[in-house]
Write a protein that binds this DNA or RNA. Structure first.
Lengths: 233, 233
DNA sequence: GAGTGGTCTAGACCACTTT
DNA sequence: AAGTGGTCTAGACCACTCC
């Protein structure tokens, strides 16, 4: 028994979710059923389910059951959209421009994205917060995994929900690297600031439930009236 | 039994750590001893210890025992010092200037810091990374909790280790709010950049093991050659 | 060999939700 | 009442560390 039994249970469930057998929001078998199916004790199945819950992959509710995590617009906004008012209030961004193209992958894109794709989709969007254009987002996706996404335009405001519902990719984690930059001519025009004005640049690599890097995203924010909030632990 | 038994175990241990009965790095009683002491089964004590481990409060090692988390310079640097080279390499900051003063608390400081202190310590430090001055840090601490800290100057590079070893405050979590700002005259002079150059400003509120807000910190970074890295989940 | 945490089992009882 | 997850127990065996 090279690996713990509960790991086998976890792998089984994650595989079923990845394969689409268990849909987001759907209910899992109960602890007892799962235990019988996989041939472990109820306590072991329970441990696996609790670990999946801690990784945010399932949600458990006493008396109701265990469900595959479904990112709602709310939770998605809350988890991965980090801009807040100075007092901490969450902001609802409005989409004011969107452009989707397919193009060959750059070297770093091919190296960092899942399956080393030759071709990628690039989604460029400008958002307005509180009436003024304040963010430029460029998301880059491996084309094989997101085939036909350009025909779904206009895309919903929260891309991660689209990824989940239409491509089975549940985004659970993202690494970000943040810099302050001076606005170039393009950014200045799009965000209506002077050239050289300080802007926040966030580069993100997002991973799905199977740990696959499925999206590179570069966001440029005006933070004169806003904050980018994170928690460290 | 309003609350679960394992919670009682957790509270007991956290209280002992907070009271200094269990020192950072010290070994806890074994599962069996703890269970007998508090009057629960070994499995319940075990659950409590596992939860404490997940919160980063203790570290467990098979065959050796359970130990109170001691932040080493390494781990502290890794967890709360977020500046990295563009390629992700960690940076070792050098201290080049330090000033500690005691002064009355501002309104927001009194409101947000533990015990609503009338008086605070302010630690202002400038660090150089890769030879060039690149960060200005201002930490504000409630004076009652950190009495006499000004006499410990010069302070170690990693303040959180000092807080732990000398004041029993183990920092486990911090909320940050990040902005891009234009360098003012003071920042420009200290960091040797032009006025108006883009800088990263990070405002942090750090909480200790008991959930007490014990430090406000404002850091200003040059990010022309560096990145601020975070992980979302 | 003694002591520690890591895994696993089998079963009990409780609290909650649904029908 | 039936089914779910939440708590708790008691005990077994294993892997690892230290003496």
């Amino acid at each position: 028994m090279g690996q713990p039994l509960y790991q086998k249970v976890i792998d089984t469930i994650v595989a079923r979710i990845g394969a689409g057998e268990l849909l987001a929001g759907g209910m899992l078998p109960s602890e007892t059923q799962l235990a019988a199916e996989i041939g472990v004790s109820q306590g072991t199945a329970r441990k696996a389910l609790m670990m999946l819950e801690q990784h945010g992959i399932v949600r458990r509710e006493q008396g109701r059951g265990t469900f595959v995590t479904a990112r709602t617009p709310e939770s998605s906004l809350f988890n991965f959209f980090r801009l807040r008012e100075d007092d901490g209030t969450i902001i609802r961004p409005e989409l004011i421009e969107e452009k989707i193209i397919q193009r060959p992958a750059s070297d770093t894109e091919r190296k960092t994205l899942f399956e080393k794709p030759e071709s990628v989709y690039e989604i460029r969007r400008i958002r307005s917060l509180k009436g003024a254009a304040s963010t430029i987002e460029t998301a880059v996706l491996p084309a094989p995994l997101f085939a036909g996404i350009e025909r779904r335009a206009p895309l919903p405001s929260a891309l991660y929900i689209l990824y989940q519902q239409n491509y089975g990719c549940i985004v659970l984690r993202a690494d970000e690297s943040i810099k302050a930059i001076a606005a170039g001519p393009d950014e200045a025009r799009a965000l209506k600031v002077e050239e050289g004005a300080p802007l926040l640049r966030v580069e993100r690599l997002a991973y799905d439930i199977l740990g696959r890097p499925i999206e590179r995203r570069r966001s440029i924010y005006r933070t004169d009236q806003l904050n980018y909030k994170v928690t460290l632990d």
